[in-house]
Nucleic acid binder design. Structure first.
Length: 697
DNA sequence: TAATATTGTCATGAT
DNA sequence: CGATCATGACAATAT
């Protein structure tokens, strides 16, 4: 059981933000929700550690092995206090959600249920969600747009209504702190975003909606601040108008998007509401729901790993309709990856993170986020770090395909670190860390939203990108495009490249998740300028390349060529794609090369150390040998003199050792031989030995 | 601010 | 012959 650090774990209201965003996306786009909320690289058996910031609770999500899915709510157990004892039990919005009367679903519960529902075949649930989404797109979900809350903003909801909730028992609630400051802070964020998004959404401007949207926003903000709990039934056109007037909302810093209460209300009002019967402590309904789904539709009878892909299909069915021009590659259909390819949205912009989660302080922040999540904005990249580039692209979009503008972009002095393949710089070391980086890096997807298509000039669609994958330049939605076939390719490629050098840097880039601030590499992309796209990524955006840099680089050559042939790409696009691929490959090669060189250096250093140690050992042995030899010489010398001291010649006189020498014969006898004879004999023996050796040769 | 490390990119040759 | 890899060299950037 390991703990996974959530990517939004920079504390504060991110947990609540995630909840709200998830609920908001339920309304519009289920797959977005999954993409957004599925914890990256989370596997059954993992325990997800949700953020435990100073104002948000953290929970551990345990898998529910009985149903093969993710944990029931009653298996959620608080972990946050273990990490942060000072953390209050739950935030204001959670209390508000609980007070709605619908079964309370914490953030992780929503995630778990979504996975469970779709993956395990809860067709009803999926249909309900789709219905909600469809109704939303057609304006039928207008109910509750006001953002009114059924719960008292002060947390009047009974947190103990659901005994199974980990939040329920005996947890005190923290009162909102400094709502005014929170609101102003959120407003400042909204202003900053508005300035950027104004250019981005230039093509989406509808002046006639601005006034109404502004009025709505003001009203909603007022309701939020005053804690109004009523849910207004809004007509369909109003919701749609809200959707279309996202840009205007950005400008005003307020929003008319659905509140979480409305979303819950919406979900609860569905006749086949998948949430029915699902309570935190009510397991059988969940299981029944799953079983029903499996029985009612084999279409959803997919395993958990297929859920995401299936969800993409649902999304397409919802957004495009039967007569859309969007074409899915049949090969891609059949080659859906069997393993969950979890991606995350850039929705958790660190810059938008606020520590406070009190109601009045947080809702404006949520409001800001919701602006980016409603309708077509839901598909937008929320990372304002790239808005400058998007802006350029937007200009290109609006004014056609301006080569000058593109060339200017290409000539911009900012030569940020080129590619970012990670995205699997999955962070850095993946091995330690991982790839497709978050925050859009290396995983730039493109929307198939027909609204985006409508907003684009026709010649753009035909000339620049091709007719099959029209994407909005404003989009940086991770994994939104149905490139799941390529995900399999990526995985396969990753395996294939295992025989090559496994660069930690590469691994890190391959990591689908990078914790903000964790990697130095990350800081490089998320610098002070807020720029997080590499040069090639920006160029790709500028030229409206319908593929991510990561795809382009990692795709097998066959897939790459077929991809180029399948899409109508301009020469400039093809050239850029090939350059991106070449540079990406070379970057990886350079990383491998450096790693290899470093390893060689390290190995050489090790060899040097080993050889030095061996040399010292040999030196010591040599000294020992010298000592031993000297001792033996000394003993021999003493023995020699001892023998001669005892020898006497025929006349009884001592034998001079300088004139005679001792010589041992073959039969063991010792002879006293004059040294002249010994030396001459040695010479003769040496000559004989030489002759013998010469004969042998 | 200088020094150093890191990283991306290009050119080139090898596979 | 094209794609890819390996690597030295250079430049930009980060530390």
């Amino acid at each position: 059981m390991k703990y996974l650090k959530p990517w939004w774990s920079d504390g504060g209201g991110l947990l609540h933000l995630t909840i709200l965003l998830s609920l908001a996306e339920l309304r519009v786009d289920l797959d977005l929700d999954l993409y957004l909320l599925l914890p990256p690289r989370t596997l059954p058996g993992d325990e997800l550690l949700l953020p435990g910031g100073p104002t948000s609770p953290a929970y551990a999500l345990s898998p529910f092995p009985a149903s093969g899915g993710w944990g029931r709510a009653d298996q959620l157990h608080p972990k946050g206090r273990e990490l942060d004892p000072a953390a209050p039990p739950e935030g204001q919005l959670l209390r508000e959600v609980r007070a709605l009367g619908v079964p309370f679903i914490p953030c992780t519960r929503v995630d778990a249920w979504l996975v469970h529902s779709v993956a395990a075949g809860d067709a009803d649930g999926a249909h309900a969600l789709l219905g909600a989404a469809a109704a939303s797109s057609s304006g039928g979900v207008g109910a509750g747009v006001d953002g009114g809350s059924q719960a008292a903003p002060g947390g009047s909801g009974d947190p103990r209504a659901d005994p199974s909730s980990p939040l329920a028992a005996g947890e005190e609630e923290k009162a909102p702190a400094e709502p005014t400051a929170q609101v102003s802070d959120a407003g400042r964020h909204a202003t900053e975003e508005n300035e950027v998004l104004r250019a981005v959404d230039h093509s989406f401007q509808h002046e006639e909606n601005e006034q109404r949207a502004s009025t709505q926003k003001e009203r909603q903000l007022q309701q939020i601040n005053q804690g109004e709990n009523k849910i207004a039934d809004k007509p369909a056109w109003e919701l749609e108008k809200t959707t279309e007037s996202s840009q205007e909302r950005h400008q005003n810093g307020t929003d008319t998007s659905l509140s979480l209460e409305d979303l819950f209300q919406l979900l609860s009002s569905q006749p086949e509401n998948p949430l029915e019967g699902i309570s935190l402590g009510d397991t059988p309904p969940l299981a029944a729901s799953i079983n029903d789904g499996m029985n009612s539709s084999t279409h959803y009878n997919v395993n958990c790993s297929q859920a995401i892909s299936q969800d993409v299909n649902l999304h397409e069915a919802m957004l495009l309709g039967p007569d859309n021009t969007f074409r899915r590659d049949p090969i891609a259909r059949t080659s859906q990856p069997q393993e969950p390819f979890l991606q995350l949205n850039s929705i958790t912009n660190p810059e938008q993170t606020l520590p406070g989660t009190n109601l009045t302080g947080f809702l404006p922040l949520f409001d800001n986020q919701m602006r980016n999540l409603t309708s077509q904005d839901l598909l937008y990249d929320l990372d304002i770090n790239i808005f400058d580039e998007i802006n350029l692209t937007s200009l290109a979009t609006e004014g056609g395909f301006d080569p000058m503008l593109v060339s200017q972009l290409f000539e911009e002095p900012d030569s940020d670190s080129g590619l970012s393949l990670n995205s699997s710089y999955n962070s850095t070391s993946v091995a330690k860390s991982n790839s497709s980086l978050s925050l859009c890096e290396g995983a730039i997807g493109y929307s198939t939203n027909p609204e985006d298509l409508e907003s684009l000039p026709r010649h753009d669609l035909e000339g620049a990108v091709g007719g099959y994958y029209p994407e909005s330049s404003k989009l940086c939605h991770v994994g939104h495009r149905s490139n799941t076939n390529f995900h399999a390719d990526l995985a396969f490629q990753h395996v294939l490249h295992n025989h090559t050098y496994h660069s930690s840097a590469l691994e890190s880039t391959s990591e689908p998740l990078s914790w903000p601030g964790e990697s130095q590499k990350m800081s490089r992309y998320l610098n002070d300028t807020g720029r997080n796209l590499s040069r090639d990524e920006r160029h790709a955006k500028a030229l409206r390349i319908p593929f991510t840099v990561d795809e382009i680089v990692r795709m097998p050559v066959d897939s790459f060529n077929s991809m180029l042939s399948r899409h109508y790409l301009t020469d400039m696009q093809v050239s850029l794609i090939r350059d991106i691929r070449r540079r990406g490959k070379n970057k990886v090669a350079a990383q491998n090369c450096r790693k290899r060189k470093l390893d060689v250096i390290l190995n050489l250093e090790d060899d040097v150390c080993n050889l030095q140690a061996k040399k010292e050992t040999l030196n010591r042995e040599r000294v020992q040998c010298h000592k031993a030899i000297n001792m033996m010489k000394q003993k021999l010398h003493e023995l020699y003199h001892d023998v001669f001291s005892r020898l006497r010649d025929d006349e009884g006189r001592p034998v001079n050792p300088n004139q005679y020498a001792l010589q041992c014969s073959h039969d063991g006898s010792v002879l006293i031989v004059p040294k002249e004879l010994v030396t001459s004999g040695h010479k003769k023996e040496n000559q004989k030995g030489k002759r013998k050796s010469e004969r042998r040769n």
